[in-house]
Design a protein around this nucleic acid. Sequence first.
DNA 1: CTTATGGCTTGATATATATCAAAATTAACA
DNA 2: TGTTAATTTTGATATATATCAAGCCATAAG
Lengths: 210, 210
Amino acid sequence: MARLDDLITRKGVYRHGSILYRSGDKFQALYAIRTGFFKTQILNEDGREQVTGFQMAGEIIGMDGISSDAHTCDAVALEDSEVCEIPFSRLEDLGRELPPLQRHLHRILSREIVRDQNVMLLLGSMRAEERLATFLLNLSQRFAVRGYSPTSFQLRMTRHEIGSYLGLKLETVSRALSHLQESKLINVRNRSLEILCLSGLQACMGKRTR
Amino acid sequence: MARLDDLITRKGVYRHGSILYRSGDKFQALYAIRTGFFKTQILNEDGREQVTGFQMAGEIIGMDGISSDAHTCDAVALEDSEVCEIPFSRLEDLGRELPPLQRHLHRILSREIVRDQNVMLLLGSMRAEERLATFLLNLSQRFAVRGYSPTSFQLRMTRHEIGSYLGLKLETVSRALSHLQESKLINVRNRSLEILCLSGLQACMGKRTR
DNA sequence: CTTATGGCTTGATATATATCAAAATTAACA
DNA sequence: TGTTAATTTTGATATATATCAAGCCATAAG
């Protein structure tokens, strides 16, 4: 553990809107978010963007860069955030000496694969309101794990960014939020969100017309 | 290399329709496809399915299982296929001794992450015909790498499976194929596909109304 | 060779979401 | 702190894709 600490260096503070890495940047390190909130996004040749994830404190980003020694997405701070850098080749070196660390790295990489595949399921088979419910429940769980309220939190991203992540236009996101509110499942006012009925939201995930 | 060969064992032949692993199966190994064609899919609680990928000879599957020691998707043979098994903990052991092998594994895991994120882009931001063009061009490239014709090949999957992968209904897939054919970009008759104009298909990827 | 079954295509119609537009609200900044 | 710019909501309408339905084709089984 001491040796891992030795590896990790405080990379610094990223102000709201600033960029941790860009697509095309040389890959050298993974980043552990200490505090704050990021989004990752990829851009098409023709300028279309897709938000591929929202990352919060305790999560690791940058794994996309390993495959080609260059990052394939942008990572942007959605609020002032503190980040630690984990030089990747040194992490690999250390992993060779410490099997549990090696295993841990593999699990983190695989967890990202599983997460991505669940987003595919969401994008490929769910209706707008279901996608939103799934998204809110996912945020809720992740806040809960960190000791924050699972039922009351701030959205760190715009409706446009939520829409980009969920494959919807921002108007659709807004309407779906309004509708969940009418259904008494949530309270939403700007970026503050309150979940009134977790089980109701869960039920909402299972509704298919599509 | 000899030691890697030592690790890998021929797992056997999987007949068309048979299952290499199922969601929930204990994770013990990665699988290298020697010959043939697979699909991987996840299933919702409520029975909805999402095809998460199509894998061909030379590709590795099973990486989803590392994170929780259990597979999170099903892998199904789409034609008679031959598979090799790579016991994962032994692969990790060997990776600790052979840094290039370790690095190779990390690249493979990361490549899957990048692939998945590009599918997110497809599902989140492309129109039906674009998705199909992207899909066909991806198959084309992968066949080319393997020394097969990039412009003439057999589709190994049904319209339904293509639709599940692309987030479309099978009728939409069928119509989009017909339309690409009318546009003289492809010839398609059942499962045989011929690409008449690679650059035309590429241009088709960039068309947005959405 | 014949029949049956699953897969595919095409048409008509329905529907979910996108698009366009305007106003209201909030946040950023000078 | 006033002013501007960005974000959000909501409505009206357009459109892409889903749904429903029927017939056709191809492959597999008897």
